Computed example of a mutant assay.
Amino acid sequence: MDDSLISQSSSRHQKHQGQRKSLDAQLPRQPSGNNTGGRTHLLILNGGGHTAFLGDFFALVRFFEQRPSFNFGGEYWTTESPDECFARNKGVVDIKFGGDTVLEKSEIVDPKDGTSTRNTQNWVYLPPPDALARFDAWLRIKSDTNASERAMPGDSIILIFLAHGVQRTTSVPGSPDPVHTPIGLQLGHNILEAEKLVAQLRRLEKDIQINVISLSCYSGVFSSRIAADGQTDRWILTEREKAWPALRSPSNRYRNSLFVAGLVRSLGGLSTLPISLGLKMVKDDVTKATQSHPDPSRLSTPQSYHSVHGNYKVASLLFRACADFPIIPQNTAARRRNE
């Protein structure tokens, strides 16, 4: 397997587990009369399988945790444990996104005895076998009209998946070449199929804005299926073909995916462009990042579907109650030289 962010099957994922291969707290609602809109329910789920996902995951966690809001509830789950990553790579003391440190080893591992302190963090380690069931349960609660943590009309749900894409391979009689059909993405040891997510989102009440962002290879299957289902109040941003990580760093580590690099760059504009930042700008920034790979064979283009106007403002669509995020610092040559 090359260094693209793709997995052909769950068995292959298990076979290579541990190897390096070619991102809702219950909160009180805002008192009536406040015009900030509904509550935002965010879930970032790192399905694991590539070193770039950890950089993506912690960059996004840091981004969303910078300015929490009364009506903003975020949950952050990773099936890849960073303390285990540090244990495998003895000389590594931090996890980077681009040239910036987004998690230091000392934050989660006691320097005296090496024990993990991850339970004190705002993110959760999710055992790989449990990932799909936990995600299913989370969405069931959001669609359960009797649950106190449910999503209500006027709320928005943001799902960000950092995971490998999964394809089903079938043989064609009379042809030497098999057919690869994208079916979903890998969450730990299980597969989230596009058809299942379409059905799950359909159960949510009307007038709940759903935003799905996935960097998985061929995750355009999600935007295509949701569009074909005619669902409204949706914005889906996915990878059309293969997704690629940034080049290895001087310390020989992948730091992030190009897709999330573009996403974070664009979302950082919420602190300076809360009025003009629209969906097209976000997609343009992601496209620019994914097409920045110096190898022409590794360029990709995101695919999106939205049932709102293309100029709809991201600050309203995604983060109705939590704008004005600070921008994650840009890379500098000095940081790279000091690594």
Rank of each mutant, 00 (worst) to 15 (best):
T170A: 09
G91W: 06
A199Q: 03
A59M: 07
S9G: 08
N71V: 02
G55S: 07
A52I: 01
L318F: 15
S219K: 08
A323P: 08
F135V: 04
L132W: 03
E149D: 05
E80W: 00
L204E: 01
L201M: 13
I275C: 03
G98V: 01
S304P: 00
T36C: 14
S224W: 02
T51L: 15
A131F: 06
Q303H: 14
T181Y: 09
R253Q: 12
S292W: 03
L45F: 12
N190P: 00
I210K: 15
D94T: 09
R320Q: 11
G268S: 05
L192W: 08
F72K: 03
R20V: 02
F57L: 10
L273W: 04
I160T: 11
D285T: 12
F57N: 05
Q30D: 04
P329E: 11
G220N: 10
L267I: 06
T232H: 13
G269V: 00
L273A: 08
T51E: 15
T272W: 14
S4D: 04
L126S: 03
F57M: 06
R336T: 12
Y254W: 14
V93H: 12
R234M: 15
G114S: 05
T145R: 12
H50G: 12
N119M: 07
L139S: 00
D229I: 05
P245C: 01
F97T: 01
T79W: 12
Q14G: 04
E241V: 03
E195Y: 06
D24R: 15
R150C: 08
K313G: 12
S216Y: 05
G48N: 08
V286T: 03
P326N: 11
D130V: 01
P329L: 07
N211F: 05
Q8L: 15
H293C: 06
G310T: 09
T181R: 11
F222M: 11
A87Y: 04
I158V: 07
T78P: 10
V93P: 01
R320C: 02
D144L: 14
T51M: 13
I208H: 05
G37S: 11
T287W: 13
T36F: 13
A131T: 07
R253W: 15
N252K: 09
S7W: 04
K283A: 07
S32T: 05
A323E: 09
E241H: 08
E241T: 12
E65Y: 10
L279F: 03
R337P: 00
L54I: 02
G184P: 05
D324W: 13
I226K: 06
V198G: 05
G188K: 14
R255H: 14
T78Q: 03
L197G: 07
D100E: 11
P68I: 09
S69L: 07
R118W: 15
V124R: 10
D177C: 06
P82R: 10
I328W: 14
R337E: 15
T232C: 15
